[in-house]
Design a protein around this nucleic acid. Structure first.
Lengths: 207, 207
DNA sequence: AACTTGACGATTGTTAACAATCTTTGTCAA
DNA sequence: TTGACAAAGATTGTTAACAATCGTCAAGTT
């Protein structure tokens, strides 16, 4: 979610065990769950590797988001009276703060999380879960194909979307979100690729 | 998926091990995956139970499907030229055959599978996965709240939807699907509840 | 008679040793 | 020098024994 583990990075069980101070069972359970979400790939007798989406999968993710997110935002704007949007307001404040302090991983994480919280605001558990999966997957893709500059969402677009929802302008909110997704996707360079990295350094920075 | 296991049915590890002739590891992996999809509930130190959705969750599932499936079908109808619909044609033939022979569990399974294959026809892996989860969840709900008669989708509606897609009538296809979902939902009796059952008989019928 | 407490049984959670598989390295020959 | 083959090492997959937790039943007390 923070793009600290590059695609194709190997996640060896022993390494994870000692890194997190945990038995193999816990690690294997975690790996199984991650693989069920498509975030890692479990190769038989070969180990776990961070998923490496190709061009086609990247397109599928954005196509799926284009299918779900616009109707979601539209619906959110139409029924925003009985919905608590303070979470989103606070979240944008966090995004701004992280941008000012230039905390790269934090900015990336929060950028994705905005869309997740958008889904959460719908109050629908399943919509929330689906969006969370798509957003984490998007993080992987942006980390792979994104130019280093625009690894996050453009600055004010989140805020504009939220304002459109608050003023119940459903049509505008939907349009803003569509172009927002287009901006993210068009900022990708589908030819560039990143090479696998050693996991030790990245993970050890965690604790 | 076939509504043979009633909600709240306990799935004991030992029972599953001997039933399927498999070690505990396999069983626990399966249970973990099922719980990650929300099909069963893993209670700590207490075991696994078939999920028992309440009224609110049932509404959420249908709301989520209402959000995704109509745009999906619309899109499918608009771009059906380069899409292979023979799978769906064949599938409806299977449904009819099962209906004629009055194979209850088969009818239920195929009814749900139609919607899954609809998503699969989009060629989008993520849309497919999401719909599959929603459909299996719907099976649980119909098994819980559905009257025994309309446990499956109404007879010709699937066929009508497919025809609308084939003739590229996007608007009609979307409308047909919306009312189809409404028919399923309105056929539910939100007050009725089914009691947990013993799992032995149901599972042993499998092999 | 009803409630609390304790022990027993059953079930799940964990650990560690073992087996199987793959990768790497080294040796030998062409 | 390069290729193939074989053995050793490392890593994952599985099994089985052990530990911990929970529910139940019985006994005792209020």
């Amino acid at each position: 979610m923070e793009q600290r583990l590059a695609p194709n990075t190997k996640l060896s069980e022993a390494r994870l065990c000692e890194t997190f101070g945990v038995g193999r069972m816990r690690v294997r359970r975690a790996l199984l769950l991650l693989s069920s979400q498509g975030l890692i790939e479990l190769q038989s007798n070969r180990g776990a590797y961070v998923a490496c989406p190709d061009k086609s999968e990247a397109n599928d993710v954005f196509a799926a988001r284009m299918l779900i997110e616009p109707p979601l935002v539209r619906q959110l704007a139409q029924s925003s009276s009985d919905i608590d949007l303070t979470v989103l307001v606070d979240h944008i404040a966090l995004e701004d703060a992280a941008r000012i302090q230039n905390e790269r991983t934090e900015i990336i994480r929060l950028s994705g999380e905005f869309h997740t919280k958008l889904a959460q605001a719908s109050g629908n558990k399943f919509v929330f879960r689906m969006m969370r999966e798509l957003v984490t997957r998007t993080s992987l893709i942006v980390g792979l194909f994104g130019s280093s500059q625009n690894a996050s969402c453009p600055d004010d677009e989140h805020n504009n979307i939220l304002k459109a929802i608050q003023t119940k302008n459903a049509e505008l909110a939907e349009q803003l979100l569509i172009s927002h997704l287009n901006h993210i996707q068009s900022g990708l360079d589908m030819e560039s690729r990143q090479e696998p990295q050693d996991d030790l350094a990245a993970i050890l920075g965690m604790d």
